[in-house]
């Protein structure tokens, strides 16, 4: 029933070394992404979702660096005889500028971003940018690559793709641009598609269309999706598994049903309480309507990161011990001392 893991992240730490100090953007994160499944990552702004995602591809901005941990990628080999074998690569150990990671980027794992406006080069045509990865990773000729790209553009729902092929991104609407991004990301049939808040910058109708498109494409291409979002409604709709992050750490993770119906971590509970019930403008609901605010990255609390905002705060324990992972079932764990076995 449980499909094999595609990515296993173990104790990942990615830090930014700034003049003012070190920002521990991701500080000991564990989770797995399974083949053909959708994993949603939720959490307040700044909790390290994007940095985690970028760590997978080793495209963390300077002065950030993976300082510890493993990112095991079980790469499905596309052998000709049809047999499915996997080879395991530790992405965290690869040189960010090296050949191996470049071969994985855009081919096995691809990514789409929040800002379809600025994530495409303003002065290169759509076609140029979409065919780029194809030309890079396959040995298709120019004509074939073009044909393939037009097919992809058509598939992601861009009308008259032959014409769009030669237009510039600024001639397209936000939704169209995001579709171009998706076409670009899918051009080499990746095993994993990372979508970092793909619908935050587009309007509501478009948002729904794009999510629907992603689901369809997942059925068709069979890739796993790691979807980063602020919107719990989206999570409910899309996710198979959920990871709730808080201040660079995992608060709780599990399958979507148990997270929604039986949230354990006080943070998850308050997150869920903050969604308005029954459809009333559920979209665009930010997650920050929890008491207090995210502490600034230089002054992290001691003990449990959520302690200062927690209703069940236990003095003497929660401010002393950073809660370890407490397993609650297969693929389900929570980081909270409330559930510690005596």
């Amino acid at each position: 029933m449980e499909s094999p893991a595609l990515i296993e992240i173990k104790n990942l730490k990615t830090h930014f070394f700034l003049d003012e100090g070190t920002v521990q953007a991701v500080n000991g994160v564990d989770f797995s992404i399974h083949q053909h499944k959708t994993l949603c990552v939720v959490g307040e702004s700044g909790c390290g979702k994007s940095v985690t995602a970028r760590s997978i591809l080793q495209i963390v901005d300077q002065p950030g660096r993976i300082v510890e941990g493993e990112i095991l990628f079980h790469r499905p080999s596309r052998s000709d005889n049809g047999s499915e074998t996997t080879e395991t690569i530790d992405l965290a150990a690869l040189n960010p500028r090296g050949r191996e990671i470049r071969a994985i980027r855009g081919q096995d794992i691809s990514m789409i971003f929040q800002e379809p406006m600025t994530s495409l080069s303003p002065i290169h045509t759509v076609g140029n940018q979409v065919t780029e990865a194809i030309k890079l990773h396959t040995d298709m000729l120019d004509d074939e690559a073009k044909e393939h790209s037009i097919e992809l553009l058509r598939r992601v729902g861009i009308p008259r793709p032959e014409e769009r092929f030669d237009t510039y991104p600024f001639e397209l609407s936000g939704g169209m641009r995001q579709r171009v991004m998706i076409a670009m990301a899918l051009s080499c049939n990746p095993a994993l598609l990372i979508a970092d808040e793909p619908t935050t910058a587009v309007d509501v109708t478009t948002q729904a269309q794009i999510l629907e498109l992603l689901e369809e494409l997942q059925d068709e291409f069979g890739m796993a999706i790691m979807l980063i979002t602020h919107d719990l409604g989206v999570v409910a709709e899309m996710a198979d598994d959920v990871v709730v992050m808080y201040l660079g750490q995992v608060a709780e993770r599990g399958d979507v049903d148990s997270i929604f119906h039986d949230p354990k971590h006080p943070y998850t509970q308050s997150l869920l309480k903050s969604i308005p019930r029954l459809g009333v403008s559920r979209n665009r609901q930010r997650l920050d309507s929890i008491r207090g605010m995210v502490p600034d990255p230089y002054n992290r609390p001691t003990g449990c990161m959520f302690g200062p905002r927690c209703d069940h705060f236990m003095p003497g324990r929660c401010d002393a011990i950073n809660p370890p992972a407490i397993p609650l079932g297969p693929g389900r764990e929570v980081h909270c001392l409330l559930y510690e076995e005596e």
Binding site: R102, R105, G106, Q107, M111, F113, S119, A133, L136
Partner: peptide, 11 residues
């Protein structure tokens, strides 16, 4: 961001 996009393609 478009630089990151290009990097994510494996250029």
């Amino acid at each position: 961001p478009y630089v990151v996009t290009a990097r994510a393609k494996g250029l």
